[in-house]
Design a protein around this nucleic acid. Sequence first.
DNA 1: TAGTAAAACACAAACGTTTGTGATGTTGAT
DNA 2: ATCAACATCACAAACGTTTGTGTTTTACTA
Lengths: 328, 328
Amino acid sequence: MAVTIKDIAKQAGVSPATVSRVLSGQAAFYSEKTAKKVKKTAKKLGYQKNTAAVELVTRRSKVIAVIVSSTKTNFSDQIIDGIQQEAGEHDLNVIILYAGEKDPQMERKALETVIERSVMGILLVAVNLNSVNENLLVNANIPYQFLSITLKNRKLPFITSDDFQIGYQATKYLIDKGHSKIGFAAADLDSVTGQLRLDGYHQAMADNGLQLNSAWVCGGDFAYEDGVNAMKQYGREPEVTAVIASSDLAAIGVMNQAQDYGLKIPTDLAVMSVDGTKLCSIVRPQLTSVTQEFFEMGVRGMQQIISQPTKAAKSAFTPFKIIARQSV
Amino acid sequence: MAVTIKDIAKQAGVSPATVSRVLSGQAAFYSEKTAKKVKKTAKKLGYQKNTAAVELVTRRSKVIAVIVSSTKTNFSDQIIDGIQQEAGEHDLNVIILYAGEKDPQMERKALETVIERSVMGILLVAVNLNSVNENLLVNANIPYQFLSITLKNRKLPFITSDDFQIGYQATKYLIDKGHSKIGFAAADLDSVTGQLRLDGYHQAMADNGLQLNSAWVCGGDFAYEDGVNAMKQYGREPEVTAVIASSDLAAIGVMNQAQDYGLKIPTDLAVMSVDGTKLCSIVRPQLTSVTQEFFEMGVRGMQQIISQPTKAAKSAFTPFKIIARQSV
DNA sequence: TAGTAAAACACAAACGTTTGTGATGTTGAT
DNA sequence: ATCAACATCACAAACGTTTGTGTTTTACTA
């Protein structure tokens, strides 16, 4: 069986209490001499602390749980990088759990595993909980923060981009480039995120006195296939001269299908994507995109968690910008 | 403070022992009547089990840790999916930790966090430990398995594709298509994986009586940029008529740079990638690839962990196949 | 009805740490 | 030499479970 602080205590001829204090660096409780002795025998015996015991008595843990929906978009890496960086600076450990795709069962399981362990904080990226799971989370009394999603329940704290503005600015950008028949593709219109972007799109069209056409908006789930399907709906000789796809992958789907139809991008059709991950500069033509600050989302999310419970978690927007590449 | 089994015991008028046995479903230790009563009050009080306490006394945990190097290739999702599926069937929880890119510091931290918690098993995907960390892992007395990597130390159990064969078969495929001047790009030549693929490439060339040219092999780190750089080295009028890139992203780098040089793919240059992730069918032209069975890697890795300590972990190869698309 | 076996439950120790408090030893001033 | 003040350490309780074993209740047999 594993070596405990009692073993160290016995070997070093001190009490377990002293060993504990030395190992956790509580200064002013021991002499340098015993500290050295303790540390040496600890190393010699190959001591590994038992976190279960620690957490049992201290009732807190140094791990941050990130629950991500294994969405088919691919920005979560950046968010996690941000989380990791911020966590590293505070000596926190990050664990990541996949919660499937809109799978309440898996979401529940993920939530339970982290709540049982009473982690220090829970970050949920791009996951939308049903009310049962939402209760589970809220009642757990653990700081939490939603990331990269706009929630119906405005009382829940989330950090994301301003989806209305994304829709608005993307549309305006295309209008400024001379387009007036603009498609809106692949967003999940049942989600608040998708709905807000659509609102922004509508508003921008209206503000510029442009006609709307319901055939120009194609819902979906932000996936590659949704982009393909949208383009199929627009057809070989599309009425629209530009389309806004709600994710990079979806935009690629639009482009590929358009090219299969023999359309040239951006001359025959301009394509604009939302997200701005590395994919945009890897595909040809490179995708002009609404680029979100995912890394910062992660950082800010962590900061919110850390500052609790002093300050309550707040919702916030992270900035975004439009980066021109080749596709419009 | 949180509600414990003692609270439930008091409310239900039974002993904590009984509550424990009811809640963990140890049949034949209680009557149906009390079971019902206990479960009801547990739910009423909103009981959440304290995993720290459980693990402290049982000395085992139901979590599988997956340590992934946040490599810039992108196959780990598939591996994790496989792990998750297999874990789900055995009521195990999986947590994922990022260990940076060849960052011994982060690797150590990740290892320590999971060892301290004495997880049930450790899966390492695409991470290569230095000897210090290797010792840490081995001495922890926790089942472990390396995935998607070939190790120098053959005593460590790893599950991956046969890298020699990947190199050999990819080369042979191109030779069969009529190519005789073949580039080998973006593999990490300091890694066993890269070296084996290179050996396979050499062997296939030799077996077919073809000349080698050291200028045709360009090392790297499996990244997009390495593909770009390799192509830059081959130049505007490359001697090679085909190139094998050691990852999908690298292959895309090769293709993009080749196209920037005005080369047509596959007519002027054939490109073949290794991995076969979804990226292959998303880029244009679609990438012909050596497709690995990453999902199965995850599944098999989990199975190895689960079957321990009955059976010792063994190394094994997962199959791969060549999928023809458009790039050769 | 008495006796007994089985079923249902309770007691208490144990897991490995942290931490409040009390005990001992040391130092220096008077 | 005395004593306060402080530094150094040990004691022991507590965290919330699980589980081996002992105790009570129930049910059944004769």
